[in-house]
Amino acid sequence: MIGRLQGILLEKSAPELLLDVNGVGYEIQAPISTFAVLGRIGDPVILYTHLAIREDAHQLYGFSDKSQRTLFRTLIKVSGVGPKLALAILSGMDVNAFASCVHAEDVTALTKLPGVGKKTAERLIVEMRDRLKEWQSAGPLWDAVDQQEQASADSMLQDAESALVALGYKPTEAAKMLNKVAGQADSSEDLIRLALRNSLGNA
Results as ranks from 00 to 15, higher is better:
2 I>A: 00
3 G>K: 03
4 R>F: 11
4 R>A: 05
6 Q>D: 01
7 G>R: 04
8 I>R: 05
8 I>H: 12
9 L>N: 12
10 L>V: 12
10 L>M: 12
10 L>G: 05
11 E>Y: 06
12 K>Y: 00
18 L>A: 10
18 L>Y: 02
20 D>T: 00
20 D>R: 08
20 D>E: 14
21 V>H: 09
22 N>P: 00
23 G>Q: 11
23 G>S: 11
26 Y>W: 12
33 S>Y: 09
34 T>G: 05
36 A>T: 08
38 L>Y: 10
41 I>L: 15
42 G>F: 10
47 L>D: 06
47 L>N: 08
48 Y>S: 14
48 Y>F: 15
52 A>Q: 15
58 H>N: 14
58 H>M: 14
58 H>Y: 13
59 Q>K: 05
59 Q>I: 13
60 L>S: 06
60 L>Y: 07
64 S>P: 00
68 Q>E: 15
70 T>W: 07
71 L>T: 13
74 T>E: 14
74 T>V: 13
75 L>V: 10
79 S>W: 00
80 G>L: 02
80 G>M: 03
81 V>M: 01
84 K>Q: 13
85 L>E: 07
88 A>Q: 13
88 A>Y: 02
89 I>C: 02
91 S>V: 04
95 V>N: 04
97 A>W: 00
99 A>S: 14
99 A>E: 15
103 H>S: 13
104 A>C: 08
107 V>N: 02
109 A>Q: 12
110 L>A: 07
110 L>C: 12
110 L>Y: 05
112 K>Y: 05
115 G>M: 04
115 G>Y: 06
115 G>T: 10
116 V>E: 08
125 I>R: 05
126 V>M: 12
126 V>A: 09
127 E>M: 06
129 R>K: 14
130 D>V: 04
134 E>N: 07
134 E>K: 05
136 Q>I: 05
140 P>E: 15
141 L>S: 05
144 A>S: 12
146 D>I: 09
147 Q>I: 11
147 Q>C: 01
151 A>P: 10
153 A>F: 10
155 S>A: 15
156 M>F: 07
157 L>M: 10
157 L>F: 06
158 Q>L: 03
159 D>K: 08
161 E>W: 00
162 S>R: 13
162 S>C: 01
162 S>T: 11
166 A>C: 01
167 L>Y: 07
167 L>D: 06
168 G>C: 04
170 K>A: 07
172 T>S: 05
175 A>Y: 04
175 A>I: 02
176 K>P: 03
176 K>L: 02
176 K>D: 03
177 M>Q: 01
180 K>G: 00
183 G>F: 04
184 Q>R: 04
185 A>N: 06
186 D>W: 00
187 S>I: 07
188 S>V: 04
188 S>Q: 01
190 D>L: 08
192 I>G: 01
193 R>A: 02
195 A>W: 10
197 R>Y: 06
197 R>K: 13
198 N>E: 14
199 S>V: 00
199 S>G: 15
200 L>V: 04
200 L>T: 07
202 N>C: 00
